[in-house]
């Protein structure tokens, strides 16, 4: 790992984090026939929040204050195993488990912080988050198993480079795209699962859990949300980047892919309404079934056409 690689990772992922939500918003504005806020608006908002003071309710404890920074820390750590330009900064066998539970730690911290407020809105939001992630976590592991089997690899960095050499390989690749798309939509709290622009407390998931945070704490949570979106989209984009490019080209291709996917995400958000809350688990099951199918396909493939 060179200093250049660290710098590239920091600039790409760290820089995309506040930009991608702005790109999605801008795309939605375009579809709605409006000019929209500047692409860098989320970044301006972060600067504004950092200059403010946090306000704490008397019912909250230290948990509430620690939560945002735990969320940010865990999200940053998770992003280290994601390959952007060539190999990832950190890579070891089974690092996908590390990745899943770093995100899991962030989620747990955010839910505990939400419950700490005692607000029914935050409680309902945390309950919904728990329900959705219970279904989503197995999908990620099943997908890692399926891709790992078919490509005979055991690191996240290698998994995103697995391409099809035959029909089964391409099937697994296509199922990876489906699974990761739903995963990004749920994890990054985007439509049709969640609506980041809503002001309706009763319908919130991610927004509900950060209702009581303010100032730098809110900035940490917003930045972590952007970084999670960037990380998810980078994984998805990596599936489309040709294997074997030089690191600088791979990095540029991934970044371009992230921006294109953000436009795609905004387009989906513009043309669909949000799902009914009761229908969201069914939507998450799409990811679970796609990942399950990937495992079955690669197991079948590995056994020479027999299960």
């Amino acid at each position: 790992m060179t200093a250049a690689a660290v710098l590239a990772q920091a600039v790409l992922l760290g820089g995309l984090a506040p930009v991608l939500p702005g790109v999605v918003t801008r795309t939605k504005s375009w579809w709605a026939g409006r000019r929209g806020a500047p692409v860098l608006q989320p970044a301006y908002d972060l600067v504004k929040l950092m200059r403010k003071r946090a306000v704490y309710s008397a019912t909250t404890t230290a948990l509430f204050r620690v939560a945002p920074w735990t969320v940010l820390g865990a999200t940053v750590v998770a992003s280290l195993v994601v390959p952007l330009a060539g190999p990832a900064l950190v890579s070891f066998p089974g690092d996908v488990v590390f990745f899943a539970y770093a995100w899991g730690l962030a989620r747990a911290a955010m839910m505990l912080g939400a419950l700490d407020t005692g607000s029914p809105f935050e409680g309902m939001a945390a309950s919904r988050e728990a329900t959705f992630s219970t279904l989503l976590e197995p999908a990620l592991f099943l997908l890692a198993g399926g891709v790992g089997l078919v490509g005979d690899v055991d690191t996240l960095g290698a998994m995103v480079q697995v391409r099809g050499h035959d029909a089964t390989g391409w099937l697994v690749w296509a199922l990876s795209v489906v699974t990761l798309t739903v995963l990004v939509q749920v994890e990054a709290a985007r439509l049709p699962v969640d609506d980041p622009t809503t002001h309706l407390e009763l319908t919130m998931v991610h927004e509900g859990m950060i209702l009581d945070h303010s100032g730098p704490d809110l900035a940490a949570l917003q930045y972590a949300a952007g970084l999670k979106l960037a990380t998810g989209l980078a994984l998805l984009a990596a599936l489309f980047v040709p294997v074997g490019l030089p690191p600088w080209a791979a990095g540029l291709a991934t970044a371009a892919g992230c921006l294109a996917l953000a436009v795609g995400l905004g387009t989906v958000e513009s043309l669909t309404a949000r799902l009914r809350m009761r229908a969201v688990p069914a939507y998450v099951l799409v990811a679970l079934f796609a990942a399950g199918a990937a495992v079955l396909a690669s197991a079948w493939h590995g056994n020479g056409g027999a299960l």
Partner: peptide, 9 residues
């Protein structure tokens, strides 16, 4: 409220 941006605008 439905998250349908085109209708809203």
């Amino acid at each position: 409220d439905l998250g349908f941006a085109q209708g809203a605008s």
